[in-house]
Amino acid sequence: MNQDARHAQFMERIERGEKIEATDWMPDEYRKLLLKLIHMHGVSEIMGAFPEKEWVPKAPTLKRKLAIMAKVQDEMGHGQLLLRVAEDLAAPLGKGREELLDDLLAGRVKFHNVFHMESPTWADAGVIGWLVDGAAIINQAALLDTSYAPYARVLKRICAEESFHMQHGENIILTLARGTKGQRQMLQEAVDRWWESLLFFFGPVEVTPAAQRMIDYRIRIKTNEELRQQFLNKYVPRIRSLGLTIPDPHLRYDEKQKKWLYTQPDWEKFGEIVRYNRGPKSEERIGLRRFAHEEQRWVREAMVRAHKMQAV
């Protein structure tokens, strides 16, 4: 069968709503789009562990300490699930876990803008759990019906765990919102700090050619803007109900257009942060990952070596 016919047959499968498996024939373009998406998703989970990890040693009660440990652990676990999916996609390209993480250190794969930013107070840990995870959940839930079956399977598991993260984040911020003046102020400042990043998180309003291809392949179904609108729908009323303000004087729901109007985030600034790892915390956190990946390589190599010595 020639390439064109194979491609046509593949597209028929996609259009019938069939799910694709790792060992199925797939167009290179499909593989590369998926790999780019899932690789970025996976390393974002792993980099996403760091802003909250900063608060693990300082969590203010024993219950919070345990909960945030469990939450950061889940993020790492999600990274594990996603990287496994990416590894199987990357295998025909001669890449495995080691190389996919090397890519992160070398700046060859991006991670979400939110994880480049600072989290200077305990309220940031709460807002990350509440709003950053809230945004991520909307993103991930929208992918549950993706055409790539291994991705769909891990997303199911991930979303189930995210439901704990939502409650965890909400509980922290609800406690702060009902707390002292100082706590409320800390919470408001954290919301102010994260708002613009959150809007950027969903990606550009226009449907880029790559995004269109992903929609064609049914890798994703919704556009960036649809998801951002969903986020605003769910979270703007909740933020306001707590008496918090949103740092955007132009934010309002337009009844005629049936959508939220908002001040655009600084696309250029965040674009640079993500593309060149130029956020306030990019370098430091990549440094942490380098410590784990490169400075601990001796452990991985020793474990393999010793197992082989034992086996012979």
Binding site: V72, M76, V299
Partner: peptide, 26 residues
């Protein structure tokens, strides 16, 4: 133990070690 979160030599081991940390605090 919890200081190793996100920094253990491999991801799977990171997750497992974190459970041990949680057990100890628990």
């Amino acid at each position: 133990d919890s200081e190793w979160l996100g920094l253990a030599p491999d991801i799977e081991g990171d997750v497992a070690f974190s459970s041990i940390a949680q057990d100890e605090v628990g």
